[in-house]
Design a protein around this nucleic acid. Structure first.
Length: 165
DNA sequence: GCCAACGTTGGC
DNA sequence: GCCAACGTTGGC
């Protein structure tokens, strides 16, 4: 039984197209305890909404899956790296990352504005005012509701989603 | 570019 | 342990 998640990324830094090209990538640089703790709960093959933030329009751009469970984020103890944290060491790592693998890119962004218009999604952290959490759990109901929203909007580019096993 | 909301830091 | 100050996130 898999779990569902949403992960935010600024497309200028790392977009769904970057993941599509790389197929698999580490999700590094998370420096927030709540987000980190959620990453530690992730299991292989969990599904992830790939969300584009700080762009126009913000929203869900596609789907990825967890291909490697949480392991130490080596960028945290690299003093030359942007994500360096002096409190994290190789012998006592403070931060973790997971690997994510591309599943599908949607033909258009499912915008935050559209998500906010759905009463069914009012309890999501994402749609709450002031919420800045970059990694969050999604309930099965929310996941399926969002997939339905997407399908009602327009067909998927290329083949239909095949991630259901 | 603005700024509200939030998380973190550090003085006391 | 409180809380003011600061830095960051991220929508608009």
């Amino acid at each position: 039984m898999s779990n569902y998640w949403l992960m935010k990324s600024e497309p200028d830094t790392f977009s769904i197209d970057d993941l599509k090209r790389l197929k698999t990538s580490p999700w590094d640089g998370v420096r927030n305890y709540q987000a980190r703790n959620f990453m530690k709960e992730m299991k292989k093959d969990d599904l992830v909404f790939f969300y584009h933030s700080s762009c126009s329009p913000p929203g869900i751009a596609g789907i990825a899956k967890i291909s490697k469970e949480a392991y130490p984020d080596h960028t945290s103890w690299d003093p030359t790296h942007t994500y360096f944290d002096s409190k994290s060491t190789e012998s006592n790592p403070k931060w973790v990352m997971v690997d994510v693998t591309f599943v599908e890119k949607w033909s258009s962004i499912l915008t935050l504005a559209a998500l906010k218009q759905s009463p069914a999604l009012a309890d999501m952290l994402l749609t709450k005012k002031g919420s800045r959490l970059s990694v969050m759990p999604i309930t099965k109901n929310e996941w399926e509701y969002i997939i339905t929203m997407l399908k009602n909007k327009r067909p998927l580019a290329g083949q239909i989603a095949t991630y259901h096993q």
